[in-house]
Design a binder for these strands. Structure first.
Length: 427
DNA sequence: TCTGGGGTCCTAGGACCC
DNA sequence: TCTGGGGTCCTAGGACCC
């Protein structure tokens, strides 16, 4: 029996964050909108009609006035809202396809092999319409024999939105080759700026050129990653659908401060706060961590500012998820890192060397986390799940810190906070 | 005043072992 | 004059992604 040919779909939400904001602000249906990064730093999402006015990544403080003149509305990022909308979209897709891999907050790969009927484009439209009807979020669908090609098809669906209606199927070799010839190599999934420059020199300019290049030469010149990309483009699947998401190998919490910090105390508070958040994520995936890397840094852009960046690794006595132990270790690291005389802009807490309980062996010299600590952490998580994050926390974590990030343009948590539901007035 | 945050995978090179 | 070689593990750093 021959294996049925694989079919992948990539479903991707259009301008996701901006679309989420618009769902709850129908008055802005015709107004261009952008969403800003944490700290209202730079633009990370633009509605379709905002694209001509704003570059991706543009610093907000530089373009603020221009936006106002152009009538573009800006929002602070509202992750509670986007996370919840994402779950809704994903569960709709999940109910319609045999298998799903959630690739990011706004993208998912689906396995369509074995879908009955030969009109996959029609099936793609059905997915698209259902999601739009139930959530108000517009999506694009790309369908192809490999994941890399599905990405390309999705890209084409967006580029030729009017013609394609947001769904493109390139399983057919004719359509596939047309797409490959009409896509620059830099647009291919896995080919970044650096690699594009190298490939350019070799005369590889389009996706088709890469698909036709010799895989072994690519492997030698670049790496196995590039080899796989080329094979995928030519129609040989090298990447599988990853359904279960494996526990993370690293967990990170890093943020810019709302303002520059010059003394050690608030930096210790920030590091304690980031450690708390990272430890929550750690426990959510049921892992333990053995090492923590803490780093702090000054601003990197302003040439007038003295620059300093440093990090330190701390080892915990045993693999743990006890926020008390972790906070103590992390804040002690700050004492070693801090140098007076600098204006600090950011701290980062990175949990490393993660393991599942039972994955390491106890011996005479290393012991494991006491049962008591586990009980305390369970109670902590239960209380915070019920009453909101930060209800119960370490004393070193302030409720309303002076260094909190700026979020001046935040929309409501329409879907996750009972006090912030939509208000409807009847006149 | 002001430029995000959170990940993955791969590779080269050093440390260490026999 | 001459100073092994092969394997493994770990780490840092590069490149990429959304």
């Amino acid at each position: 029996m021959t294996k049925p040919e694989s079919v992948f779909a990539l479903i991707d939400c259009n301008s996701f964050y901006a679309s989420c904001e618009r769902v709850f602000r129908p008055d802005l249906a015709k107004t261009p909108i952008v969403v800003l990064s944490n700290n209202d730093g730079c633009v990370i999402a633009r509605s379709y009609d905002a694209k001509p006015f704003v570059k991706m990544g543009a610093p907000y403080f530089q373009i603020k006035d221009q936006l106002r003149r152009d009538g573009v509305i800006a929002f602070s990022s509202n992750y509670a809202l986007y996370g919840d909308m994402s779950e809704r979209v994903m569960s709709i897709i999940e109910s319609m396809v045999p298998a799903l891999e959630v690739y990011s907050i706004d993208e998912a790969f689906a396995d369509l092999s074995g879908i009955p009927g030969d009109d996959l484009t029609a099936f793609g439209r059905q997915i698209r319409n259902t999601i739009y009807k139930r959530t108000g979020i517009p999506v694009g669908v790309g369908i192809a024999r490999t994941k890399t090609l599905a990405k390309l098809a999705n890209h084409m669906a967006k580029r030729l939105l009017a013609k394609t209606g947001g769904v493109v199927d390139i399983c057919d070799p004719f359509n596939r080759d047309w797409t490959l010839r009409n896509t620059e190599v830099g647009e291919v999934w896995g080919v970044g700026k650096r690699m594009k420059a190298h490939l350019d020199v070799m005369g590889i300019k389009t996706a088709m050129d890469l698909a036709k290049a010799d895989p072994w030469t690519l492997r030698q010149k670049f790496s196995v990653v590039m080899e796989k990309t080329a094979r995928e483009l030519s129609g040989t699947p090298c990447l599988e659908l990853g359904e279960a998401d494996p526990p993370k190998q690293e967990i990170c919490c890093s943020r810019m401060f709302g303002s520059r910090l010059t003394t050690i105390e608030p930096i210790r508070e920030a590091v304690a706060t980031y450690t708390q958040r990272a430890a929550e994520k750690l426990r959510a995936q049921n892992s333990l961590c053995k090492r923590i890397r803490v780093s702090i840094r000054t601003g990197m852009f302003n040439p007038e500012e003295a620059k300093y960046a440093n990090g330190a690794m701390v080892e915990l006595p045993y693999p743990t998820n006890d926020v008390r132990l972790m906070t103590k270790a992390a804040t002690e690291a700050v004492n070693c890192l801090f140098r007076a005389g600098f204006k600090y802009s950011k701290a980062e807490v990175l949990l490393m060397d993660l393991r599942q309980p039972g994955e390491f062996t106890d011996d005479l010299f290393t012991h494991s986390q006491p049962v008591e600590a586990e009980k305390v952490m369970n109670v902590l998580d239960d209380i915070n799940a019920k009453w909101g994050r930060g209800t119960l926390r370490a004393a070193s974590v302030p409720a309303a810190p002076e260094w909190a990030m700026r979020q001046d343009l935040m929309s409501q948590s329409f879907t996750t906070q009972i006090g912030q539901l939509w208000t409807v007035r009847c006149n």
